[in-house]
């Protein structure tokens, strides 16, 4: 009973949370790809935005582009969106999902290496 509930809660939460995660990721990549630094930086987690000296200028110069979403994982307040040629990591804040890391490449056995990272 406990296990079934846990499984349903886990699966249910993960499934219901995917849409806003994908939406945030797509809006972010669309803004960055179209050179709109302000909106793109507005979707970054505060720490990630602060990691860039001039966020609005730098965020549009790292080559982020909209791409097809291949896989979405949501666990608690953290999420990963894998796209064709890019991976994003997001964190859920009270105001909604924000990008913690973008332009990420996998490294076997180690954390992803990211162009922008909180």
């Amino acid at each position: 009973m406990v296990v079934v509930c846990l499984a349903l809660i886990t699966a249910g939460c993960a499934s219901a949370e995917k849409d806003p995660v994908v939406s945030t990721a797509e809006r972010f990549l669309s803004a960055a790809g179209q050179g709109q630094g302000g909106p793109a930086c507005g979707l970054l987690a505060p720490k990630a935005a602060r990691s860039l000296d001039d966020c609005e200028k730098q965020i549009v110069s790292v080559g982020l582009r909209p791409a097809a979403v291949r896989e979405v994982d949501v666990w608690g307040d953290e999420a990963r969106v894998r796209l064709d040629g890019d991976t994003l990591f997001l964190h859920r804040f009270p105001e909604g999902w924000r990008i913690r890391a973008a332009g990420c490449d996998p490294r076997p056995g180690r954390p992803y290496e990211c162009e922008v990272e909180a």
């Binding site: 666990w75 953290e78 990963r80 913690r100």
Partner: peptide
């Protein structure tokens, strides 16, 4: 565990 891994920029 997977939440922690994602927070560390690792795959679930």
């Amino acid at each position: 565990y997977d939440e922690e891994r994602l927070a560390r920029l690792e795959d679930p």
